[in-house]
């Protein structure tokens, strides 16, 4: 511990003399300082996170239509209703399908982009920026471009124009659930929006792989390309991959914006949050059932997160103890 040498490098701004005053005694107190720093945050967390969750659990046991101070206790009726509600259960199916498509495709595409960009020697920053740029665009704006320009079902629109070149008739991308072309619209929009972000994560991880590993593999006769990728790159990216998959899953679970905007006024393709939005804030204003739905979703996501963390060995961030 070479504190004496370090002291010489202390910034000059720190050298000001303390002012004497009534705060002197408190300033040294650790407890006081702890609450001074964390108090505002913790108070907000209590009011705007814990109380709503608690209130939501409370409301879920009451019949609460158009009111947030209900009087009629109904026990588990709201939960029973939600679990036997076809629309709500359908939204869970929609989420499962969505997650099953979007998580692997985003993982693969962002890793692929990272591998490409990582090998570039010229214009690397340029290409990285291009792939990263869509991260700045909102889901609403992307939905608008997708719905009104690329996948416009009527007669113009890029996708139908391109298909027209091959003599394929117009496809009603969003207006018809059978065949479910709307999935193509939703998945491509989200891929475009989020791949750049995960590419940055993979790029950072790729640059952390020690070069010796590749040298050693080359000496051992591993062929460059597929073999090195499979036996070195991929295992070295394990921690990042796990985290990316977890983040993607949580993000898919919260999908709302593009479903809400792309599939306005349709009865198909409603993920859980859209369904909840219509139950709680639509014409019914049913806070009781809406809250029950929120509780069910929260329990589900906690289970999935914990379960996945267990399976994929997400124990690295546990230094917190």
């Amino acid at each position: 511990m070479s504190t004496t040498t370090k002291l010489d490098h202390a910034p000059p701004a720190a050298a000001k003399a303390p002012k004497a005053g009534p705060w002197r005694g408190l300033r040294g107190s650790r407890t006081f300082n702890f609450w001074l720093f964390t108090g505002p945050f913790l108070a907000g967390l209590l009011i705007f996170v814990y109380i709503p969750i608690g209130w939501s659990i409370y409301l879920s046991f009451f019949e609460a239509r158009f009111t947030v101070t209900p009087e009629k206790f109904v026990g588990f009726d709201n939960f029973r209703e939600m679990l036997s509600n076809d629309d709500f259960m359908g939204s869970l199916v929609t989420f499962t399908v969505f997650a099953a498509i979007i998580v692997p495709t985003t993982w693969a595409l962002s890793l692929g982009l990272a591998l490409l960009v990582n090998r570039l020697r010229f214009m690397r920053a340029f290409f990285r920026s291009v792939f990263f740029l869509p991260t700045a665009v909102s889901y609403v704006a992307a939905s608008l471009i997708w719905k009104m320009s690329i996948f416009n079902g009527v007669r113009f629109g890029l996708a139908n124009t391109v298909l027209g070149v091959f003599d394929v008739g117009n496809v009603a991308w969003l207006a018809n659930p059978d065949p479910p072309w709307y999935w193509l619209v939703i998945v491509t929009a989200r891929l475009w929006l989020q791949c750049g972000f995960y590419m940055i994560l993979f790029l950072a991880a790729l640059q952390n792989i020690p070069g010796e590993l590749y040298e050693a593999a080359a000496i051992d006769g591993a062929k460059r390309g597929w073999q090195t990728f499979w036996y070195i790159t991929l295992p070295q990216l394990r921690a990042t991959s796990t985290a990316v998959i977890l983040l993607l899953l949580v993000a898919a679970y919260q999908a709302f914006d593009e479903f809400f905007n792309l599939l306005e006024r349709t009865t198909w393709g409603r993920p859980p949050l859209v369904e909840l939005y219509y139950i709680a804030l639509g014409e019914e204003q049913d806070y009781g059932r809406g809250s029950a739905g929120a509780v069910i979703l929260t329990l589900l996501i906690c289970t999935v997160t914990l379960f996945q963390g267990r399976i994929m060995g997400f124990g690295r961030g546990e230094e917190a103890k």
């Binding site: 967390l45 709503p52 939501s56 709680a280 806070y287 929260t298």
Partner: peptide, 30 residues
């Protein structure tokens, strides 16, 4: 350093398990 700092930190970590978007109904109510 504060004796309850760890417990408080866990209380913060627990909220990470509940995505903010899922609680929009109760937050709106509040």
């Amino acid at each position: 350093p504060y004796k309850h700092a760890n417990k408080i930190f866990y209380a913060v970590l627990v909220t990470l398990m509940v995505p903010a978007a899922v609680t929009f109904v109760p937050s709106f109510v509040l």
